[in-house]
Design a protein around this nucleic acid. Structure first.
Length: 192
DNA sequence: CAGTGGATCGTCT
DNA sequence: GACGATCCACTGG
């Protein structure tokens, strides 16, 4: 059966934590300069809008950068982290509700040669197991910010539904500044 | 292995 | 002017 592209009905939902969990096992793909690359999503984090101290949109902060998060779900939110890495998020929720899911890791599927070239690595191990690594491998840059996840440049397809036992839940990474919200169980890992 | 520090720049104060 | 939703090389055990 042909993989089914996730559509508006998924992205517009308001339960971002469940959406983060459900993205595990889906396939994220890009086509850049005719080169198709993809991987199975194995790690995600939910960022829950204006009430989440870890979110860029905490307190309803609406700036040129966070504007993307306030858009209706179904597009990419890409921003520069630590001055050198582009991080990729899936915007979810209806317009005005700035929820997003950070994709933190994928397992290489298609276009591994291309991904290794972009990463300047010649082994699969460690190729896409970090939020900054996978964007390099998939060719995702700032140009992907606000781009629809409709499969033309970038898209997400259902691949398989993981067993509950294959999923681990933990607090999020690198958000110590978020106070009590740093303890929320909003990070999901999939054991393939 | 664990721990450490450098790279690097857009964004917001 | 300070600070990241990070990665990697390098150190020492």
């Amino acid at each position: 059966m042909i993989p089914e592209l996730l559509d508006k009905s998924f992205f517009l939902r308001e339960d971002v934590v469940n959406q983060a969990r459900e993205l595990l096992g889906c396939v994220l793909f890009t086509t850049v300069d005719g080169e198709f690359t993809s991987g199975i999503i194995t790690e995600t984090e939910a960022y829950a809008g204006i009430n989440d101290r870890a979110s860029h949109a905490y307190g309803g902060r609406r700036t040129a950068r966070t504007e993307t998060m306030f858009c209706a779900g179904g597009l990419a939110y890409v921003y520069l982290c630590y001055g050198m890495y582009h991080l990729f998020n899936v915007v979810t929720g209806p317009e005005g509700m700035p929820n997003a899911v950070l994709i933190r890791a994928i397992s290489p599927l298609n276009g591994t040669e291309t991904m290794m070239r972009r990463r300047k690595r010649n082994i699969l191990k460690g190729l896409t197991d970090g939020p900054g690594k996978l964007t390099i491998a998939l060719g995702i840059s700032h140009l992907y910010n606000k781009v629809p996840l409709d499969g033309s440049m970038i898209g997400i397809t259902r691949h398989y539904c993981p067993a509950a036992e294959a999923i681990t839940t933990t607090p999020r990474i690198g958000i110590d500044y978020a106070g009590e919200d740093a303890l929320l169980p909003y990070r999901f890992l999939l054991q393939l």
